[in-house]
Design a protein around this nucleic acid. Structure first.
Lengths: 152, 152
DNA sequence: AACGATTAGATCGTGTGCGATTGTTATTCG
DNA sequence: CGAATAACAATCGCACACGATCTAATCGTT
């Protein structure tokens, strides 16, 4: 394993970039999840939104956005697709009509439960990591994200 | 710092997902890069493509795709935008007309040089990591991507 | 030479991300 | 009270990602 390793492709300057390995790992995660999620008819970001909703129902769009690091311009259409699929419901807050609260439907909650029961194990296997390694890497990536976000 | 830490948002099941911390770090990288790249009028994926091209000129679209883990359906429009911006040139291989070879123009090469001179230092700073930590994390993410890709 | 099979890239439709703007509903303050 | 302001979600335009399909060029076999 030297700097002239050709196992996958010739050495590339991209190999030196953490941003690139993160980008590429993100693409790879997406591709591993896709066939698993196709069974449920949802996309990977939709899956993340459902996980976030499974923690607490009736979250505001902006709260969901804080958890997912997304804004209404991305979330509104995504949530509407989940609504069209019958997985979530949207309703205006009765005390503040500016706010839209999102909840899982029974179907959505069942999907969240079922998906969380099968998928994580498959991902763990695909990652090639042990549970402890995965947890450690997760912490580092969480910290990295926090640093990058705070660096503005 | 307990499981009820509320510093950013209440604990979320997403916190347990490596895929999510990677996803969120990817979003965060994108947002750190955006103002830096806006000066050059390019996007983050375009920047990665230019870095990949700076290693070797005249790469095939498919070679570029192997480096970036993308396919022609994504790369063709991206490269055409770079061409429209005057940063790369596209020409058919003279021995095999199916192949399109992509090269940096002088402008594109100058941009690659300049961008690589300023940006990595800013990113290192924003990441909150030391050089060694960054290198170690990069290796782990590269390995993770390789595992996920091979797991199909 | 001629045919089908393979390869390379381009194209199309859908779903994110995101900067910028808009519309509507609360809140603040004169 | 009423006008300015702020907050919230929605909308719009553009640029990725990606499955699916298409076209054109080459290769392999006979």
């Amino acid at each position: 394993m030297t700097e002239t390793d050709k196992s996958a492709s010739a050495a590339s300057p991209l190999d030196q970039f953490l941003c690139f390995s993160v980008y590429a790992a993100g693409l790879a995660f997406n591709r591993v999840y896709k066939p698993l999620l196709d069974r449920y008819g949802i996309t990977y970001p939709q899956y993340l939104a459902i996980i976030a909703l499974s923690a607490r129902d009736g979250q505001k769009v902006s709260e969901l956005g804080e958890r997912l690091f997304l804004e209404s311009n991305t979330l509104t259409p995504l949530i509407k697709r989940l609504e069209a699929a019958g997985l979530v419901s949207r309703r205006r807050d009765e005390h503040d009509e500016r706010i839209v609260r999102v909840s899982l439907t029974d179907t959505g909650r069942a999907l969240a439960t079922e998906a969380q029961a099968c998928i994580p194990a498959e991902i763990l296997k695909a990652s090639g990591l042990g549970e402890n390694e995965l947890r450690a890497l997760n912490q580092q990536m969480t910290a990295l994200g926090a640093s990058l976000r705070g660096a503005v």
